[in-house]
């Protein structure tokens, strides 16, 4: 009856968002008086697998079939569904991510599960199963009543802050039957900016808009991001103009992020932009126009010219 957590790997390491998911799942297991099992798919060494225990999983099911080395939402969903059946899991937890999104829905279909996406808090089990989620692109929350026998929770970043112990999980190999149909999509090529901090995973984000005037000026944004170990993001016009890649664009039609710190440079703060970033813990706005709407949604603000302010901030960070 354990709570099952899908823990996503990135190059053989458990992703940070997956650590949050494990910690979250272990808390839910505790509330339900049961244990937490993590399912990990793809190749990773034993120490890494066992480290799921640091975040509260007592057991790890490891599906290492070579066919699963490339992330594949459909096949991974089949594996997780099989694990849920084996463990008789009534609650399945995943972190929101590109892969997680692809799996969640397929899983819900397979398990006929009650599904809450964008979960932002632990469930309330005092009367049924109720869980809070973010809706209307961060403009509101819903308290969802999950009535199905099996429940799936897709949690947003920063829903919970994991505390690591030094406990190790027991690792068991898991070899479910795979469906050929799950391999019907063939990946021809992948383009990925490597080495950078993944935006959806980032704790700190430096973002810039049209106020930067052109792609040639992004150096000052990248310098500040590098000093902070932050990811970079941008507004929609910036990606529409091809100044920055589309995968960096945040807002209503882009990524929705919830980092600890979001620094907006030369972004006016249109409601569609705010929709993607308003659940950030701390928001800093730097804009030369004191009337820019973004200041109304900020925690800290500087009325000033980004070309002057950003290099000074970078210097100050390096001096910390």
């Amino acid at each position: 009856m354990s709570v099952l957590i899908f823990a996503e790997l990135d190059e053989g390491k458990i992703k940070k968002s997956a650590q949050e998911a494990i910690f979250y799942g272990a808390k839910v297991a505790q509330m339900m008086g049961t244990s937490a099992t993590a399912i990990i798919i793809g190749s990773a060494d034993n120490t890494e697998l066992a480290s799921a225990g640091n975040f509260g999983a007592t057991k790890v099911l490891h599906a290492a079939d070579a066919k699963l080395n490339e992330p594949n939402g459909m096949a991974y969903a089949t594996v997780v569904a099989a694990a849920a059946q084996q463990e008789n899991s009534k609650v399945v937890v995943l972190a929101k991510s590109s892969l997680g999104d692809a799996m969640t829905a397929r899983l819900a279909g397979k398990l006929k599960a009650g599904l809450a996406a964008n979960v932002v808090d632990l469930p309330d089990l005092s009367n049924g199963f109720r869980v809070k989620s973010s809706i209307y692109t961060g403009k509101a929350f819903a308290y969802n009543e999950l009535k199905a026998d099996v429940k799936i929770l897709a949690i947003k970043k920063n829903t919970i802050t994991p505390e690591a112990s030094d406990a190790a999980a027991i690792v068991e190999p898991f070899t479910p039957t795979l469906n050929d149909a799950d391999f019907a999509i063939s990946v021809k090529s992948t383009e990925k900016s490597s080495g950078d901090i993944l935006l959806p995973e980032a704790d700190l984000v430096v973002s810039a808009g049209r106020g930067l005037k052109g792609p040639e000026n992004w150096g000052i944004v990248e310098d500040l991001a590098k000093a902070l170990h932050a990811a970079t993001a941008c507004s929609k016009p910036v990606s529409d103009l091809d100044w920055r890649p589309h995968s960096e664009h945040v807002g209503q039609t882009g990524l929705k992020i919830s980092p600890n710190l979001y620094i907006a440079c030369g972004i006016s703060g249109a409601i569609q932009h705010l929709a993607g970033v308003n659940s950030s813990k701390v928001i800093v706005v730097i804009n030369k126009d004191a009337d820019a709407p973004f200041f109304k949604s900020a925690d800290y603000g500087i009325v000033g010219d980004v070309f002057d302010v950003l290099p000074r901030l970078t210097k100050a960070v390096n001096a910390l």
Partner: peptide, 25 residues
């Protein structure tokens, strides 16, 4: 399989703290 029991609006952010540009650090 799911219903919404109720909705809620996010708590408003506190007042913004402004820092003069010449003291950006």
């Amino acid at each position: 399989l799911t219903t919404v029991a109720s909705y809620e609006l996010p708590a408003p952010r506190g007042a913004v703290k402004m820092i003069p540009a010449d003291e950006a650090e």
